[in-house]
C-alpha cells in the first residue's frame, strides 16, 4: 500500500481548498478543512490528522502561531503555504518545526507530491504505531492497510480499512446509522470485484459513489466524535470575548461564495451599533 492518510488543510481561501482537495482525493487521501487559525488549531487537536497543510496568513491566529502552539504538544507533519516575499516567515516556519514549505502560487500536483514525501519521511512513527485489531478471525492492520479474514486478505480500499478500523475500535458507538453509508460501498466493492459491471462508465460511477459514501462516513465519524466528546465533557465549552460582527462577517464571506454556487443570495446584517 502506498502513502496515504488524513490531511487537514488550513487556508482562508475556499478555492485553495478545492484545488488541493481534488488532487488529494485523486490519490486516496481523506481531508478536513479549516478556514482560520483558531479553527486550524481546534481541528488539529480534535481530528489528529496525519499531516497539516498550513497557510501562513490566516485570520484570527496566523500560521506561525498555530505551528508554534501545535509543536508544544504534537509532532504532526506540517507543510507551510507561504506567499512570495514572505522569506523571513518561511525560515521562521521551518525553525518553528514545519517539515516543509510551498510558495504560492503553487501547483496542486506539487502539494500532493510534497505531502507524500513528508509522510514517507515520517513513516516510522506515523501509522505503524497503531496496533492491529483482532476479533475472532478478523484482523485489521492499519499500518499495512490490510484486512484479513481467517488469514485471507480481503480486498479493501485504504478508506475502507480506516473505516473498519474505526468501527472496530469503537464498538459501542456503532449504531444502525452506520449501516446505510457502509452498505453501499460494500455492495459496490463486491460488484466490482466480481466483474459484474457492464462497462467502464458504470465502473467509474461506482467508484465515485463509493468515494462519496466513504467520505460521508468520515464526516459522520467526525461529527459523532465531536458530539460524544461534548456530551462526555471531553471538550469543554468556555465563554470568551469576541467581536460578533467580525466573526459573523467572516462566516458571511465564506457562505456567500458557497451560496452563489447554487445561485442562492446570501445577505448579512450585522448587529446594530450601541
Amino acid at each position: 500500500m502506498g502513502t496515504t492518510g488524513h490531511i487537514l488543510i488550513c487556508d482562508d481561501q475556499p478555492i485553495i481548498h478545492e484545488t488541493i482537495i481534488a488532487y488529494l482525493k485523486a490519490d486516496g487521501f481523506t481531508y478536513d478543512s479549516a478556514f482560520d487559525g483558531e479553527e486550524a488549531l481546534r481541528k488539529a487537536l480534535e481530528i489528529k490528522p496525519d499531516l497539516i497543510i498550513l497557510d501562513l496568513m490566516m485570520p484570527k491566529t496566523n500560521g506561525i502561531d498555530v505551528c508554534r502552539t501545535l509543536r508544544k504538544t504534537s509532532d504532526v507533519p506540517i507543510i507551510m503555504l507561504t506567499a512570495k516575499g514572505e522569506e523571513i516567515d518561511r525560515i521562521l516556519g521551518l525553525e518553528l518545526g514545519a517539515d516543509d514549505y510551498i510558495v504560492k502560487p503553487f501547483s496542486p500536483r506539487e502539494v500532493v507530491a510534497r505531502v507524500k514525501a513528508v509522510l514517507r519521511r515520517r513513516m516510522p512513527n506515523h501509522l505503524e504505531s497503531r496496533p492491529a485489531l483482532r476479533y475472532d478471525g478478523l484482523e485489521i492492520n492499519l499500518s499495512a492497510y490490510e484486512v484479513r479474514l481467517n488469514g485471507n486478505l480481503v480486498p479493501c480500499t485504504p478508506k475502507e480499512v480506516e473505516v473498519l478500523y474505526f468501527l472496530a475500535a469503537h464498538p459501542g458507538q456503532v449504531s444502525h446509522e452506520f449501516h446505510t453509508p457502509v452498505s453501499a460501498p460494500r455492495a459496490l466493492a463486491e460488484t466490482l470485484l466480481d466483474d459484474m459491471v457492464p462497462d467502464e462508465e458504470t465502473k467509474k460511477r461506482y467508484y465515485g459513489h463509493m468515494l462519496h459514501e466513504t467520505m460521508r462516513l468520515s464526516r459522520l465519524i467526525n461529527d459523532l466524535l465531536m458530539l460524544s466528546r461534548l456530551q462526555s465533557g471531553a471538550v469543554s465549552t468556555q465563554r470568551e470575548a469576541f467581536q460578533i460582527n467580525e466573526l459573523m462577517g467572516s462566516v458571511a464571506d465564506r457562505y456567500t461564495v458557497l451560496a452563489a454556487e447554487k445561485n442562492i443570495t446570501f445577505s448579512f446584517s450585522p448587529l446594530p451599533a450601541g
Binding site: 460578533i244 459573523m248 458571511a252 443570495t265 445577505s267 448579512f268 446584517s269 448587529l271
Partner: peptide, 23 residues
C-alpha cells in the same frame, strides 16, 4: 432570479438588551 435567499442577522432582544440574538 436567484434560487432562494439566505439571511444572517443579529439583533438585540426586545426586552433585555444583554441578550443578542443571531438568526
Amino acid at each position: 432570479m436567484p434560487n432562494g435567499i439566505i439571511s444572517l442577522f443579529a439583533y438585540l432582544d426586545d426586552h433585555d438588551d444583554h441578550i443578542i440574538k443571531v438568526s
